[in-house]
């Protein structure tokens, strides 16, 4: 069982730059053919200031923090036993290539189901840009399979 004392555990804030090449690769990875997501001229023609950060990429960028699974180790979460249970995003403004996004994260709940066979860890992330504007929030729920 995971120690409930880790409810409230925070990861150190981390600032990461959104890179164009990475967004182009991400577009390939999800099969996104809309040129707005890979061609800067198309993005500008559609009213964007650069390549937009697509809706789920914020989750990915967060994994560029140094040692992205370090908090698993701190909390005692065994990586081979982990599945992604739920993911929620709330969007406040668009983010673009070239932005410097700062991620802050905190564990807000740990609970179990099925007599402890499954444990759930809920982590909230807040993302602000280089102008200290709130870009988005996301909530990640991971499932730890015991037994």
């Amino acid at each position: 069982m995971l120690d409930r004392k880790f409810i409230g555990y925070t990861s150190a804030p981390c600032t990461l730059e959104v890179e164009k090449g990475r967004l182009r690769l991400f577009a390939i990875a999800i099969g996104q053919a809309d040129p707005v997501y890979s061609d800067e001229a198309a993005a500008r023609a559609a009213g964007h200031r650069s390549l937009p950060v697509p809706p789920t990429f914020l989750f990915c960028l967060e994994m560029d923090r140094p040692n992205p699974y370090g908090w698993f180790d701190d909390v005692g979460i065994p990586l081979p036993k982990v599945l992604h249970g739920e993911q929620q995003f709330t969007y406040h403004r668009m983010a673009y290539a070239g932005d410097q996004l700062t991620f802050t994260a905190a564990i807000v709940d740990i609970y179990d189901k099925k007599g402890g066979l499954l444990e759930f860890v809920v982590q909230d992330n807040q993302i602000t840009n280089q102008h200290q504007e709130l870009v988005a929030e996301f909530r990640r729920t991971i499932v730890v399979r015991h037994g």
Partner: peptide, 12 residues
């Protein structure tokens, strides 16, 4: 490709 693009290198 998704591993590299997403930054999620979970070996699973």
């Amino acid at each position: 490709i998704y591993c590299g693009a997403s930054g999620d290198h979970n070996p699973l």
